[in-house]
Design a protein around this nucleic acid. Structure first.
Length: 424
RNA sequence: GGGGGAAUGUCCCGAGUGGCAAAGGGGGGGGACUGUAAAUCCCCUGGCGUACGCCUUCGUAGGUUCGAGUCCUACUUCCCCCA
């Protein structure tokens, strides 16, 4: 088991070439062997996703892009939904045990998440068509004794205690239940199951999943003596050291009903200068030379590169049309100070507005503040604007007379978050 | 099994003599400066109310007290020592 840093190695397979050139590879159990497999035939690889929320977020995107490249270079991607493992909960990076979700919640989350994959991968029955599976299908059938005898024998407590997910919890003196302790075994059996069902030889994931992935690789090798590889991506951090995945007041969701295409576009538009090249390579499919050229634009010109990044990334998720609308709306709002229909909009009852609604209420309803107190503080801090005029009193009433000629009220929290209020 | 310690602002770390909405960080939000960037500086960061104010918070549940994060009892979880 080695952990090469993937810089010296020159892959022959198109798949690994792309991954390496574009910066997707952090660690791999055996790059050379995997490269050989990928150049000799169709490789089946999978990534597992939790069903703890009803939408994936930007942190998942890097692995989705890898699956996309996998498919584009002639291989078969599997998206594994953690219908079974979600019931246990991955202890990685968590201090406290998560509340257990009900079957209904998990099923509904899963259905909602699945729509995202369809945008990046093509599913079907052809050799390189993507496959979607749910690990509840096999995990729930396992009997306890059978599970212990078939899989439990291959794991030592000594080894499990050395994994970061476990070690961290213990070091921080947080409880780790036996239930959660079993998560890594369950994830390992996923790999074995996929190896048997689909001849899957590769599991990919974020670097925090390295320990879990290794377990699966070893299990497949020990039990079935089949080839199994693991590959992880670097943890996404912005150049200034922040976790990528939060921006403009919350998680960056991939489902449009959680985060509008406009806001999604904004997330990319607000990329730090130093990250532009990296993000272009990871989250767009532009040729490398173009990524490098854009990232090298001097001074304020780099903003053009950010727009391209935003266009391309948004197109992949929401389509070209939505991306262009987002760009046009942003262009009007930021560069010409003009309103656009495509800005996020909150519809309110015309009669209620006629009677007058406190700004603070609208700010909360529009999702620009978490509570009325929060909204009031925003106003007091000078961050709240109505139709471009600062409003410092959260109690101020807005009514029909505040409508612009376009028939809306423009509500802005800070310089970047804008919501239109529209009476209906 | 016996003994000693610990759990704090529902993001994290972390002070806290019985009068505390509770120090200080980090993170997050806003403002200034810029290029919708970074760095820097300033402000805010439990909820409700226009407001003197009211309500809810310090592992859980009770108790003592005019008053409890702070004292007592039981329970839960974690750490340490002895067996």
């Amino acid at each position: 088991m080695s952990e090469p840093t993937a810089t010296a190695f020159k892959p022959k397979s198109q798949f690994l070439q792309v991954l390496q050139e574009r910066g997707y590879i952090h660690q791999c159990t055996d790059l050379e062997a995997l490269d050989k497999a990928a150049s000799e035939g169709v490789v089946t690889a999978y990534v597992g996703y939790d069903c703890t929320a009803d939408s994936l977020h930007i942190g998942h995107l890097i692995s989705i892009m890898m699956l996309r490249w996998l498919q584009k270079t002639g291989h078969r991607p599997i998206t594994l939904m953690g219908g079974g493992t979600t019931k246990v909960g991955d202890p990685t990076d968590k201090d406290k045990q998560r509340p257990l979700l009900t079957d209904a919640q998990i099923a509904s989350n899963m259905a909602s998440i699945q729509t995202t994959f369809g945008k990046f991968l093509s599913f079907g029955a052809a050799p390189t068509d993507a496959v979607m599976v749910n690990n509840a299908d096999w995990l729930e059938k396992l009997g306890y004794v059978e599970f212990l005898r078939d899989y439990g024998v291959h794991f030592t407590i000594n080894r499990m205690l050395t994994f970061d997910s476990v070690k961290l919890r213990l070091e921080r003196e947080q409880p780790l239940t036996f239930l959660e302790f079993n998560y890594m075994l369950m994830q390992a059996t996923d790999y074995l199951e996929l190896s048997r069902r689909y001849g899957c030889v590769l599991q990919m994931g974020g670097s925090d999943q390295w320990g879990n992935i290794i377990n699966g690789v070893e299990l497949v090798r020990r039990v079935d003596a089949k080839p199994a590889y693991g590959l992880t991506t670097p943890l996404l951090m912005t150049s200034s050291g922040q976790k990528m995945g939060k921006s403009l007041g919350g998680a960056v969701w991939l489902n449009a009903d959680r985060l509008s295409p406009y806001d999604y576009w904004q997330v990319w538009r607000n990329t730090e200068d130093a990250d532009v090249g990296k993000f272009l390579r990871l989250f767009t499919e532009l040729p490398l030379e173009e990524c490098d050229r854009l990232a090298a634009l001097p001074g304020a010109q780099i903003n053009e590169a950010k727009k391209v990044l935003a266009d391309e990334a948004t197109t992949l998720l929401h389509g070209r049309e939505a991306a262009e609308a987002a760009r046009a709306a942003a262009d009007k709002a930021f560069e010409h100070g003009v309103l656009s229909e495509d800005l996020p909009t909150l519809e309110v009852d015309r009669a209620a507005l006629e009677a007058g609604i406190p700004v603070a209420n609208l700010v909360v309803d529009a999702g620009l503040a978490s509570s009325r107190s929060d909204a009031r503080r925003l106003a007091q801090g000078g961050g709240l604007r109505v139709n471009n005029d600062p409003v410092t009193d959260g109690a101020q009433l807005l009514s029909l007379s505040d409508l612009t000629p376009e028939g809306v009220i423009k509500l802005a929290a800070g310089k970047k978050k804008i919501v239109l209020i529209k009476p209906i």
